[in-house]
Design a protein around this nucleic acid. Structure first.
Lengths: 133, 133
DNA sequence: CTGGATCCTCCATGATACTG
DNA sequence: CAGTATCATGGAGGATCCAG
């Protein structure tokens, strides 16, 4: 017991890390927003409302699990509204809440930046790769 | 060979997914930006230049590996500049490039959104958890 | 001080099967 | 149609050691 085990040190470090996060609560939310599917879903719903299957098609490559998981998370955070129509077959429509729409603007700026600067980044990468090759 | 194997279907789906990405190149860059450490590093360097060890301290909880990996990625993408001072002990300063600074504004808007709406999201979560409990 | 290299763990994610 | 449940795994990411 004289020295700490790796597990103990890990826990301790984690506690420090959490404390750091606690002092800046937005970090957690930022981490949530820093999710591939979150960005795509919010952008898609920003264009228009989507049914589950529409989102599934739109975000080609997303698994059911991740789509559902992402939607649940966004619904829980109050960014997305889930409207169930009890019919046969069942129908579920997703839309942005007012809070979700307020996120749309900032997120689209980042998206716009990515689109605008993709060429510059590509050049930078080519340059970097050429030098270190 | 009449039917596709799971592996083949997976490949095919992946190809479709890549094609989708290709039609919207910014997706890849967006994915890069949608990284926890990327956001934190850019924000930190947006405030002021940092040495490697300063970043390591600032982003409490980040491992050497992830910090280095993130910095290399940002350097390669032309967002961050790496200035080595050949001395003993060695000193490496990181700063944002012009391109990196241009990203700062959009990213900080998202950050500001997160800070502003953290309470609303918290309330939404509490409500959601209460109902489904 | 600033990392490079290595090993290893575990979790996010995908595949698959099943249901109201 | 819109999921849920379960299992499997690849790779992100952390721990550790070492070097310039």
């Amino acid at each position: 017991m004289a020295t700490r085990t790796a597990a103990e040190r890990r826990l301790e470090a984690k506690a420090d890390y959490d404390a750091y996060l606690a002092s800046c609560p937005s970090r957690q939310l930022l981490a949530t927003l820093s999710d591939k599917w979150v960005t795509l879903v919010v952008c898609a719903l920003g264009e228009r409302d989507h049914r589950y299957s529409e989102l599934s098609t739109r975000l080609a490559g997303v698994s059911q699990k991740m789509l559902t998981q992402t939607l649940r998370s966004l619904e829980r955070d109050g960014l997305v509204d889930r409207a169930v129509t009890a019919s046969v077959p069942p129908r579920v429509d997703y839309s942005l809440t007012a809070l979700g729409r307020s996120l749309l603007d900032p997120i689209q700026h980042v998206k716009a930046w990515a689109e605008l600067n993709m060429p510059a980044v590509d050049q930078a990468r080519a340059r970097y790769d050429r030098v270190s090759a």
